[in-house]
């Protein structure tokens, strides 16, 4: 008998603080496995954690990590990659971090073709701060700051990051995936692998947008959350490859 599924060495032993059923944990595992399979060794990978639920990612990824100010991970990663062009550099960010306060940073890192990889976890809500509306919240979605449902009239429409960034010439690979199902998870890993490969080959900027759940702040069970994602988020945020150089 051989071990066919085991925790990656790119994850530390620390149990995560994420809520039961939150798919952040799955995405952490996928990033860790892909990094491990790059065979460059943990010492040659540097990650940047955001401010958000994943702020403690610097305790979970077993490589050199930096904690960035809210929204600034792509800038921090730029500084790192310029200092260590030979290292693999990634940012792991949520939708408030990337699409709201950090919108300028991600746009310009992409436009510069910064040779970093961004894992963008889109769960259409602010998790850590208790369920406020995010730029990716759906029209009509009830959150603590859109108690009557997101009103397009006053709060506008969801930001489509993958579509937006794919208009730029700097990105080499952009794909939107989802971890709401096992096939989705398998496809997500493949996409993350391609993104890191694009970085390794020096092709330019890469970003994988991962649709993810937030059972606690969506007010749904873990299982219902996967269904809600499939029925509501995927139509708003179509999966697929948006840029491939």
């Amino acid at each position: 008998m051989a071990v066919v599924f085991k925790k990656s060495s790119m994850l530390t032993d620390l149990p995560t603080h994420y809520c039961p059923g939150c798919t952040h944990g799955i995405i952490h595992r996928l990033v860790a496995e892909v990094c491990e399979e790059l065979n460059v060794g943990n010492k040659n990978i540097i990650g940047v954690a955001p401010v958000g639920c994943a702020v403690f990612a610097y305790n979970y990824f077993n490589c050199d990590m930096m904690e960035a100010a809210h929204g600034r991970a792509p800038a921090v990663a730029t500084g790192i990659k310029r200092a260590h062009p030979d290292k693999i550099v990634f940012t792991y960010q949520g939708d408030g971090d990337l699409a709201s306060i950090g919108a300028a940073e991600i746009v310009h890192a992409a436009a510069r073709g910064e040779k970093i990889t961004t894992i963008f976890v889109n769960n259409a809500i602010y998790g850590m701060t208790g369920g406020q509306m995010a730029p990716t919240s759906l029209v009509g979605q009830v959150t603590t700051t859109s108690p009557y449902g997101r009103q397009a009239e006053s709060a506008g429409y969801p930001v489509k990051v993958s579509e937006m960034l794919s208009q730029l010439d700097g990105p080499a690979y952009i794909e939107r995936v989802s971890v709401h199902s096992v096939p989705g998870i398998i496809a997500a890993k493949r996409a993350i692998k391609k993104a890191f490969a694009a970085q390794q080959e020096g092709k330019g900027f890469s970003l994988i947008e991962v649709l993810s759940t937030c059972p606690t702040n969506w007010g749904l069970t873990p299982k219902e959350s996967l269904k809600w994602l499939e029925d509501n988020m995927i139509p708003q945020f179509p999966l697929g490859v948006y840029k491939e150089v």
Binding site: V3, V4, S8, G25
Partner: peptide, 8 residues
């Protein structure tokens, strides 16, 4: 989400 299961 928590890598609880190891499989052989």
């Amino acid at each position: 989400p928590d890598v609880v299961i190891e499989i052989e």
